[in-house]
Deep mutational scan, measured.
Amino acid sequence: MSIQHFRVALIPFFAAFCLPVFAHPETLVKVKDAEDQLGARVGYIELDLNSGKILESFRPEERFPMMSTFKVLLCGAVLSRVDAGQEQLGRRIHYSQNDLVEYSPVTEKHLTDGMTVRELCSAAITMSDNTAANLLLTTIGGPKELTAFLHNMGDHVTRLDRWEPELNEAIPNDERDTTMPAAMATTLRKLLTGELLTLASRQQLIDWMEADKVAGPLLRSALPAGWFIADKSGAGERGSRGIIAALGPDGKPSRIVVIYTTGSQATMDERNRQIAEIGASLIKHW
């Protein structure tokens, strides 16, 4: 067993022997301040990774656009098919120029040779490549099948209805392509620590998230040296922004954090800054 596999296998073990965790309302004060600064709703939840206990939450059962955070769930569904012998990570998928959609920095470079399922998941999570996500959605049967996968996990809230990039439209009061912070946090925890996926697939999923290259201005910008984070960000229309993450000190994750916002007129930089400040408060009061 590799060191990384050992780390993920012992996530519940280490967490069980940690000192009790206590909620700190100071972080919620910052979440509410972010709402004021952005002029928009902000949803927040913080779960203990081992027990699933909610440590703090704000608007945990209000719907927010998922945006690209759905790509972690998508690759979880792909990995479940791999575990069941219905898919192979090494299978190569070929596609054409007509398949390319807006923001496809990886797939646009491989029109000639195609990409493997493993490479597509890596591109979808680490670079948020939209064509990679659409190609992977095709392998599982489309958005409705991802929703069905989530329902089978016990998540009857999260739903995907459309493809990239239309799913980022974020129309107010439109339930399409949305989740709730509580539902997303619980589902992410199941994917990373539950028995739904094999140990190898859980490790692969967290490795992809740990290698995320496009979430630097968010929670990662607030992390002290030595902290662990595996995350996936999302951005959408109407001032929408979000991030889902597993993080913790001492090089291992111990909490799940989900943050979503929508309806702001603020710039992307300002949305990023507010999420980073929430992260800084979380870490300060850990």
Rank of each mutant, 00 (worst) to 15 (best):
Asn173Phe: 13
Trp208Thr: 03
Leu137Thr: 07
Pro249Gly: 05
Val31Met: 08
Leu120Tyr: 02
Gly85Asn: 11
Val106Thr: 07
Gly226Trp: 06
Pro143Asp: 03
Ser2Trp: 09
Phe70Gln: 05
Gln88Asp: 13
Gly226Lys: 11
Arg238Ser: 11
Lys213Phe: 10
Thr126His: 06
Ser2Ala: 09
Arg162Met: 05
Phe17His: 10
Val29Gly: 15
Val8Gly: 08
Phe64Ser: 01
Asn134Ile: 04
Met209Glu: 00
Trp227Asp: 00
Thr193His: 14
Trp286Met: 07
Asp113Met: 10
Val106His: 08
Gly52Lys: 06
Ile93Gly: 02
Ala222Val: 14
Arg7Gln: 14
Pro224Gln: 06
Leu197Cys: 05
Ile171Gln: 15
Arg41Leu: 09
Ala200Tyr: 13
Gly76Met: 05
Trp227Arg: 00
Tyr44Pro: 00
Arg7Trp: 08
Arg241Gln: 04
Gly142Tyr: 02
Leu55Tyr: 11
Ala183Lys: 08
Tyr95His: 05
Asp155Asn: 06
Thr147Gln: 09
Gly236Ile: 02
Leu79Ala: 03
Glu61Asp: 15
Lys30Asn: 07
Arg238Asp: 07
Thr147His: 07
Asn272Ala: 05
Cys121Asn: 02
Leu150Gly: 05
Pro181Asp: 00
Val101Ser: 10
Ile259Asp: 00
Gly154Gln: 09
Gln88Tyr: 13
Val101Asp: 14
Ser221Lys: 13
Trp227Asn: 01
His24Asp: 13
Val72Gln: 02
Pro224Leu: 04
Ser264Val: 05
Thr179Tyr: 00
Leu205Thr: 03
Ala230Trp: 03
Gly242Arg: 00
Asn130Glu: 01
Asn98Ala: 15
Lys213Ser: 10
Ala170Cys: 13
Glu277Ala: 11
Leu191Ile: 11
Ser254Leu: 11
Arg220Trp: 02
Val117Arg: 01
Thr27Lys: 05
Gly142Arg: 03
Gly154Ser: 08
Asn152Ser: 15
Gly248Lys: 02
Met184Phe: 09
Ile278Cys: 04
Ile11His: 05
Thr126Lys: 07
Leu150Tyr: 08
Ser254Cys: 14
Val106Ser: 08
Ala40Val: 06
Ser233Glu: 01
Leu79Gly: 02
Ala215Trp: 02
Cys18Pro: 05
Arg92Met: 10
Glu195Gln: 13
Leu196Gly: 12
Leu137Phe: 09
Asp174Val: 04
Ile54Pro: 13
Leu167Gln: 04
Ala183Cys: 08
Tyr260Asn: 01
Arg220Asp: 03
Leu38His: 07
Ala276Thr: 10
Ala211His: 14
Phe58Asp: 02
Thr198Ala: 11
Cys121Trp: 00
Ala170Tyr: 12
Ile244Val: 13
Ala200Lys: 13
Ser233Pro: 05
Val31Lys: 00
Leu19Phe: 15
Phe70His: 08
Glu195Gly: 14
Leu47Thr: 09
Ile171Asp: 13
Thr107Arg: 01
Ser221Cys: 11
Ile283Gln: 06
Gly85Asp: 10
His24Pro: 06
Leu160Gly: 04
Asp99Tyr: 07
Leu55Ser: 06
Asn168Leu: 05
Gly248Pro: 00
Ala84Lys: 11
Ser233Gln: 01
Gly263Trp: 04
Val157Glu: 12
Lys232Arg: 06
Ile3Asp: 08
Arg241Glu: 03
Gly263Phe: 04
Tyr44Thr: 02
Glu46Ile: 07
Ala40Gln: 09
Pro65Lys: 04
Ala280Ile: 14
Leu146Glu: 01
Pro25Leu: 10
Asn98Ser: 13
Leu79Met: 11
Pro60Lys: 15
Arg162Tyr: 03
Phe228Trp: 05
Leu79Ile: 05
Pro172Lys: 10
Ala280Val: 13
Arg41Ala: 09
Ile243Phe: 05
Leu89Ile: 07
Ala77Glu: 09
Phe6Pro: 07
Ala15Phe: 15
Ile45Gly: 03
Tyr44Val: 07
Ala266Ser: 13
Ser68Trp: 00
Ile275Glu: 01
Ala123Arg: 01
Gly279Val: 05
Ile229Arg: 01
Gln265Trp: 10
Arg81Lys: 13
Met1Thr: 01
Asp250Phe: 12
Tyr103Ala: 06
Leu191Pro: 00
Gln86Ser: 12
Asn134Cys: 04
Leu197Met: 09
Leu160Asp: 02
Phe58Ser: 09
Thr193Asp: 09
Ile54Ser: 08
Arg220Lys: 06
Val257Gly: 01
Asp36Ala: 15
Asn50Tyr: 13
Ala230Phe: 02
His156Tyr: 15
Leu150Phe: 10
Leu89Ala: 07
Ile171Ala: 15
Cys75Val: 10
Ala280Met: 15
Asp155Arg: 00
His24Ser: 12
Thr139Pro: 03
Pro60Thr: 12
His5Met: 15
Thr198Cys: 10
His5Gln: 12
Pro12Tyr: 13
Ile275Met: 11
Asp155Phe: 01
Val106Asp: 07
Leu223Ile: 12
Asp129Ser: 01
His110Gly: 08
Ala280Pro: 01
Leu282Trp: 02
Lys213Arg: 12
Glu210His: 10
Arg238Met: 14
Leu73Ser: 08
Val8Arg: 13
Ala16Lys: 06
Ile278Asn: 00
Phe17Glu: 04
Gly234Asp: 00
Ile206Pro: 01
Tyr103Thr: 05
Val117Leu: 11
Met1Tyr: 01
Ala230Pro: 00
Gly142Ala: 04
Val8Ile: 13
Phe22Arg: 10
Leu49Arg: 03
Gly239Phe: 02
Val257Ala: 06
Glu145Cys: 13
Ala183Gly: 07
Trp163Glu: 11
Ile259Met: 08
Ala211Ser: 13
Thr69Glu: 02
Met66Val: 13
Tyr103His: 08
Phe70Lys: 02
Asp177Ile: 01
Phe14Trp: 07
Leu28Val: 11
Arg63Phe: 06
Gly90His: 12
Ala222Gly: 11
Gly239Arg: 02
Asp83Gly: 05
Glu62His: 08
Ser122Asn: 15
Gln203Ile: 11
Asn168His: 05
Ala215Val: 04
Leu160Ser: 11
